[in-house]
Design a protein around this nucleic acid. Structure first.
Lengths: 211, 211
DNA sequence: TTTTGTGAAGCGCTTCACAGCT
DNA sequence: AGCTGTGAAGCGCTTCACAAAA
């Protein structure tokens, strides 16, 4: 049934898409079957087929053939379904060790994300660091974010400064925040926050490691 | 029913634990009710209570009272259930911008993880960088990892070097890898791998941001 | 009245099984 | 034989509703 994609289905499709992209540019132009996909990403083939069947537009007929799925056809469908078919601008807030590690980041795959700016309250850093994107002092955040239509912020400031910086981002129009600071952010509900905090990652890993 | 914790239940308990720790050291020594927890972490109170009820040892009686749950009692129970009641050593492999950002990392909460070593193939970096943990040249990885019983590796090397480095870790006895390099690792099944890759995080965030 | 704790109902996702096709 | 696509069954998690206690 098109239109309904569970949380888990979206996650599987994300993995599938990544795998298909790798597969496509690794030479082999052919189709990918659900059986192959099962071996590569680990989910049952039936589940994968069901997920894919949810992507179909109304009355567009089959997505795959009995030879399998064509990555060239499937990847765009997944992107559309996941809302990844649009370019989004993001910025890095806080250019310490972590922030400056990301400031030269250019996603190797077809860039659906564009690094549009970097900010730091320390003017020295802004002037010294080299980056592919323009760097600005922190007081220009609101202006730059709204002028360029930046939608996502990578929050790399120290924990003490995180909440205030996040609020500035939100007020300026940012709609999603990747929070690398070890604090929980309290923001209006329409802002999506995703925490990337080392302790949590370590814990999640340890939990999976079982005993 | 003790013993059965779904994937999602474990994730909720992880969040709950984090919240309880914050709550406990923020002064207020009192109990936390499921209603408060609902407001703080967002999951329905019934679900939270069910999750907690799964923690109970056999015949130990109630975990909470009608005043709520005592963090001092609950947090250890959660840690035990999630296998986080044991100290684990980890190391940082690759001391570039990202790796060196983590080399001074000391988790603010009661450290259930101990940074035991850092490695880099560039001997200069090893000698120049300052860190709370000892740093070694890469060729000593196998020896140091097994000598100290390091269980987890933070893989911060460039993409080209990731697979080889991961294999060295695995061979030396590491049982979990936090992979910051933008490549999928192929490792024996008993090694847990958790990818922390910026593009994936951005995508996941964008998906949640909907339209 | 608030709370926890829990059996049972409800519901959504996964899995099965099979039809149709190459 | 393989493959996709899909209704239906199965099952697991969440939610409900209520008992018991403070």
């Amino acid at each position: 049934m098109p239109g309904t994609l569970s949380e888990s289905a979206r996650e599987r499709l994300l993995q599938l898409m990544r795998m298909l992209e790798k597969f496509a540019l690794s030479g082999e132009g052919g189709a990918v079957t659900s059986t192959q996909a099962e071996q590569l990403i680990g989910w049952p083939r039936d589940t994968i087929r069901k997920d894919i069947s949810c992507l179909g537009g109304p009355g567009e007929g089959a997505i795959g053939s009995s030879a399998g799925y064509d990555p060239e056809l499937l990847v765009p469908l997944i992107k559309r379904a996941l809302g990844l078919d649009r370019r989004r601008k993001f910025c890095v807030v806080g250019l310490g060790r972590l922030g400056s590690a990301y400031i030269n980041f250019a996603p190797p795959e077809l860039a659906e994300f564009e690094l549009a700016a970097g900010f730091d309250s320390n003017v020295n850093r802004v002037e010294i660091l080299k980056a592919t994107a323009p760097l600005y002092p922190a007081y220009k955040m609101a202006e730059v974010i709204s002028r360029f239509g930046i939608e996502i912020a990578l929050l790399c400031v120290p924990a003490e400064a995180a909440q205030a910086a996040a609020e500035k981002c939100a007020a300026a129009g940012v709609r999603g925040i990747l929070n690398f600071a070890p604090v929980a952010l309290w923001l209006p509900g329409e802002i999506e926050v995703r925490n990337v905090y080392l302790t949590d990652e370590l814990r999640a890993l340890a939990v999976k490691m079982k005993n």
